[in-house]
Design a protein around this nucleic acid. Structure first.
Lengths: 234, 234
DNA sequence: ACGGTTCACGTACCGTGAGTACGTACCGAT
DNA sequence: ATCGGTACGTACTCACGGTACGTGAACCGT
């Protein structure tokens, strides 16, 4: 059998077994849509990016788009998920291998500060994510990606102290640090000297962590209830 | 409408000297627009609120709206400014009278946690502000209101330590805490037991501030450069 | 091999809503 | 009285998200 009928010059689809040609083509255009959407959302923002321009960029039509996604928001969510999970993976990768909690924290922070400077993550996840997805969905997404990493770091950092940590308090600390890092990341990205700004953020958070250590050394307990008068051991 | 010669049952405009009737009427409809807009933006969000519904609620027409505002975004910004400055004033009010830095910090935090639970501030300022205004404008607005309060608190807290604080480091710490509080506030507002959640946040941040105190007592310097290995005095 | 079914789109259209052009009534100064 | 300008109201345009439906190629059973 000579390869007579297969001579299409559409994309190279090297005959993956178990996956039909249709499925491959389909996945291809879907990825193209997400690619173009990510680019345009990053550059012009969600509201200022029309679906017409996206489908034009992906060289398809709205019919294709609405076949794969239920609407503009769903497309955004797909982009969001990819950007977010990429970021989470990058951080995860750095965290593996580090054993010392403080080392872990430092490495994680450093990586996050790099990630948050990528224009895609900045705009899609940090700036527009909450407004476009609605805060609830936004939180759900974060919960099982980047936030999970922060949680892991906080667990290991707080676990290093002499405290027994309740889960809710751990969550609270993690939320606080997560927000702190997002905000700090924004200011770093918006700074005219991001390198110096990142260094300052690292120093500041490092300082706060050092405060934890100092409290641990001093034998101060982790708070559990409402904030009473703060007293060091004197 | 039987229009008698003089004002009959049009809004109460008690003859303020120096302000013409026209100016008063004008200001009245403008305020009505901002009022209705705030309500609707808070309830349904920016994108899901049509200008038609706003002008209907304010009992005027789009002509009036576009006379006072250059567009939807400008209207949102007016709402944003009012919500934001109200919040800043509330915090400011609490801060006055407190002299002790730690007291100031605690009171400020507590007030902020209350403010951030108001649905208007939550949605308009925290959630949709960055996306609608664009991060640059958002930041400019925050800079001279709520963030300014955080800055003041941080200055007095850090000033209480033995450190000489550079302005940039102060800014960094303030950014971090500002983001931390915003994120924490969101989680508090989204919690099913906001009171307990707020208490945990207070405790956590209080703990971190206690860490500052501990470091101050231990004579640890404020970091200035990139993060070196963190060492307590041992 | 072949008919039928399904899938992956393309095409044409609709409704909504932001923004605009322009008309107008009323206030305030002359 | 009149006259200019302010503060709107009215009627329209147009971009854009979404929908209905058509179509041809890929798959599947016989």
């Amino acid at each position: 059998m000579a390869k007579s009928s297969v001579s299409k010059l559409v994309p190279k689809v090297p005959a993956v077994p178990g996956v039909s040609r249709r499925q491959q083509y389909s996945a291809s255009t879907k990825r193209a849509l997400v690619d173009v959407a990510e680019q345009m959302f990053t550059e012009h923002g969600y509201a200022s990016t029309s679906l017409d321009s996206i489908v034009a960029g992906a060289d398809v039509t709205k019919g294709a788009l609405y076949h794969h996604f239920s609407g503009k928001q769903a497309l955004f969510e797909a982009v969001f998920e990819r950007v977010e999970s990429d970021a989470a993976r990058a951080i995860q990768k750095v965290l593996r291998g580090k054993k010392d909690p403080w080392e872990k924290a430092r490495a994680g922070l450093r990586t996050f500060l790099e990630v948050v400077q990528e224009p895609g993550y900045r705009r899609i996840v940090v700036q527009e994510g909450p407004a476009v997805l609605g805060y609830e969905r936004y939180r759900e997404q974060e919960e099982r990606s980047t936030y999970a990493n922060v949680l892991e770091i906080m667990r290991s950092v707080l676990g290093a102290g002499p405290w027994e940590l309740e889960d809710e308090m751990l969550q609270t600390f993690s939320r606080i640090f997560f927000g702190a890092m997002a905000s700090a990341g924004e200011s770093v990205a918006g700074s005219d000297d991001p390198i110096a700004a990142a260094a300052r953020v690292e120093a500041a958070i490092g300082f706060m962590i050092a405060g934890f250590q100092a409290l641990a050394d001093a034998g101060v307990m982790l708070p559990t209830g409402p904030l009473g008068p703060i007293t060091t051991t004197d």
